[in-house]
């Protein structure tokens, strides 16, 4: 391992908070700070984990102000966060960016950034399943690994990355798979694209769907507030009231999770929504496999959401609706991203 020096890559650690930036009052607070505690400024990481200096020159930035209730970036701050990350990535002195985040909303923030940051430099989101202060906490190793990945030349151009539990996942496919166990993230149906192993960072595959530098979604062109899209779960005996309420509240699009199980009342409400020009996307409630492009969906004008989770389909639909309401074009987005 090379000694610390000016030749090391420059990685900026951006804190949006989360378990990884939280010290609880006792080390046995594993799931939350039941006995009290608070988040800390990024300087604590470099003090507690000087090993970071062995793999990169570390800069820090405190963006905890963007944090929402779950310790991750609140969606109303996503655009501001993306804007600052793009500035950092555009700095020729910066080689990579690490963003710490609450584990809960990480996959959704990562997917949004994956669609709007035009950078080819590594942008790595990292979280911990346990607070920084926990006994056998995963925060320190996750943070160290995230910095190693952000400093690695092969990490560029693969879209926004998620690092946890010694694995590297692609933002599009990463999902939280456990509320508190160490294998907290996975890419359901697919798999990791690389590993942060004790000896080396190694990539095995790369995502083929469009992202970051190959994305057509421009941060600067986005309206201050993205078009409203609501998620509705298909339930065989549900009336259509939730769909009607979403429309009454001004939704421009709907994501229906589990389209095959829609009730007659929901189908009728969706038909009225389609007549009003509301764009409807279907996701598969199986959390494995795509919402297939079957005849029934095609005939009803519902756009298949590929294998995206409902929240990710919602993010893509909001970005799509900010550009167009043309269903053919939106269908293309769901095939290409």
């Amino acid at each position: 391992m090379p000694p610390p020096g000016i030749d090391l890559p420059h990685v900026v650690l951006v804190s949006v908070g989360g378990e990884i930036a939280t010290n609880c009052d006792t080390p046995l607070d594993l799931a939350d700070c039941a006995s009290g505690g608070e988040t800390f400024a990024p300087a604590t990481w470099t003090r507690d984990l000087p090993d970071l200096g062995l793999v990169a020159r570390i800069g820090t930035e405190d963006l905890r102000a963007f944090s929402g209730a779950d310790g991750g970036a609140a969606p109303e701050h996503w655009q501001a966060l993306a804007g600052r990350l793009q500035q950092l990535a555009g700095d020729p002195e910066v080689d990579g960016v690490v963003v710490t985040h609450g584990a809960d909303g990480l996959a959704d923030t990562a997917f949004f950034l994956n669609l709007v940051l035009p950078t080819r430099k590594p942008v790595v989101l990292v979280a911990a399943q346990r607070p920084w202060s926990a006994v056998s906490g995963d925060g320190p190793l996750n943070l160290y690994d995230a910095v190693r990945v952000a400093a690695h030349p092969a990490a560029g151009g693969k879209g926004v990355l998620v690092v946890a539990n010694q694995e590297v996942h692609a933002a599009r496919d990463a999902r939280r798979t456990s509320a508190y166990r160490m294998d907290g993230f996975g890419s359901v149906d697919l798999g990791l694209i690389g590993v942060a192993d004790p000896d080396v960072v190694r990539f095995f595959t790369e995502p083929t769907r469009r992202h970051t530098h190959r994305s057509e979604f421009e941060l600067a062109a986005l309206p201050e507030s993205l078009p409203a899209v609501e998620i509705v779960a298909a339930v065989p005996d549900a009336p259509g009231r939730l769909i009607e309420a979403a429309l009454a509240a001004g939704a421009k699009g709907l994501v229906v999770d589990g389209a095959a199980g829609l009730s007659a009342g929901q189908l009728a409400a969706l038909r009225r929504a389609r007549e009003q020009g509301i764009v409807v996307v279907a996701t598969s409630a199986t959390r494995g496999g795509r919402a297939p492009e079957v005849t029934a969906l095609r005939e009803s004008g519902v756009i298949p959401g590929d294998n995206l989770t409902p929240t990710k389909a919602r993010t893509l639909l909001r970005l799509a609706l900010a550009k167009t309401t043309d269903p053919t074009e939106i269908r293309r987005f769901f095939r290409e991203y």
Binding site: S187, D189, L190, G191, E206, T208, G289, R290, P292, E293
Partner: peptide, 24 residues
Amino acid sequence: VSPDVGPLGFADADRVVLYRSPVT
């Protein structure tokens, strides 16, 4: 199966989709 790494894609009934490309 492809342990850890997962498949590259699927030949689904409606379409063949490929989500990954090997970098080895």
